[in-house]
Amino acid sequence: MARYRGPKTKIARKFGEPIFGPDKVLEKKNYPPGMHGQSGRRRKKSEYGIQLKEKQKAKYTYGILEKQFSNLFKKASASKGVTGEVLLQLLESRLDNVVFRLGLAASRPAARQLVTHKHIMVNGELVNIPSYQLRPGDIISVREKSKSLEVISDSLTSHRYNKYAWLEWDGAQMSGKFLNRPEREEIPENIKEQLIVELYSK
């Protein structure tokens, strides 16, 4: 499936946030790209423009394309609960995102690659679909032959794993458990999901 492979720093500067991870260039140039970026002389954004920007930020953050995002929103709309919160919960429940959250990969694109290259198992079965939706109780583990992979050990030793209330990590087994879908306050991403809901409601 097609993925965004363009300049990531430019996109991060557009949103003013390190949505692809730590970025030294963004730290130095914390203003939008383009000739008017530093001066701030940009046209005032419309309500639609603000809502669209928030949706784009969510798409880039989780690394998914328009059709997938739209399908997730429809699923969230049909579910019980607050649509915006359910949408973020569905994004957080993706296999590639959880692999990233567990610290097995340094970024979501790296996590997606681990999944597509068949290094990750769910409940003892190989799963190579990054968008696979995890359910409470699912066990995510590294395939036995892949446990010595340098990219995984480097990510784990650099202590990228932060403890999240909805995940449980077993370092000895190199496996994690998806306990439940996270509550909104537990999701660290700076996304105003209500703006996305308003955009799709038009």
Rank of each mutant, 00 (worst) to 15 (best):
Ile139Pro: 00
Glu168Tyr: 12
Leu87Ser: 01
Gly63Asn: 04
Leu134Val: 02
Phe73Gln: 00
Leu167Val: 00
Leu87Gly: 02
Gln133Gly: 08
Leu114Gln: 01
Tyr62Pro: 01
Met121Phe: 10
Asn123Thr: 09
Val115Gly: 01
Leu88Arg: 02
Gly63Arg: 00
Pro130Tyr: 00
Ser155His: 03
Pro33Cys: 12
Tyr48Gln: 06
Leu126Asn: 04
Leu156Gly: 01
Asn30Tyr: 01
Phe69Leu: 04
Ala111Lys: 00
Asp138Trp: 02
Pro33Asp: 10
Asp170Ala: 09
Ala105Val: 02
Lys118Asp: 06
Glu125His: 15
Ile64Trp: 00
Ser107Cys: 08
Ile129Ala: 06
Gly63Asp: 03
Thr157Ala: 13
Leu126Met: 07
Glu92Leu: 03
Ser148Arg: 12
Gly137Glu: 06
Thr116Ala: 10
Val82Gln: 11
Ser39Asn: 13
Ser148Thr: 12
Ser77Gln: 14
Thr116Asn: 13
Leu87Asp: 02
His36Ser: 15
Ser70Leu: 11
Gly84Phe: 01
Ser148Lys: 13
Ser155Ile: 04
Ile50Gln: 15
Tyr60Lys: 01
Leu72Val: 09
Phe100Asp: 03
Ile140Ala: 01
Glu47Val: 11
Arg143Leu: 13
Trp166Ile: 05
Gln56Thr: 07
Trp169Pro: 02
Gln56Val: 06
Ile64Val: 12
Ile129Gln: 06
Val25Ile: 14
Ala106Gly: 08
Ser70Met: 10
Ser141Leu: 04
His119Phe: 07
Pro136Trp: 13
Asn97Cys: 03
Gly49His: 12
Glu27Asp: 15
Pro33Asn: 11
Ala105Asp: 02
Gly81Leu: 08
Ile120Ala: 05
Lys145Trp: 07
Ala76Asn: 06
Ala165Gln: 13
Lys163Leu: 15
Lys55Gly: 09
Ala58Val: 01
Leu65Pro: 00
Lys118Glu: 09
Met35Trp: 13
Ala165Arg: 13
Asp154Asn: 15
Val82Lys: 11
Arg108Pro: 02
Ser146Val: 05
Gln56Ala: 10
Val25Trp: 10
Ala106Lys: 10
Ser77Asn: 13
Val127Pro: 00
Gly81Glu: 08
Gln38Asn: 08
Ile139Gln: 07
Gln113Ala: 09
Trp166Leu: 06
Leu72Pro: 04
Leu102Val: 06
Lys28His: 11
Asp170Lys: 10
Asp138Tyr: 04
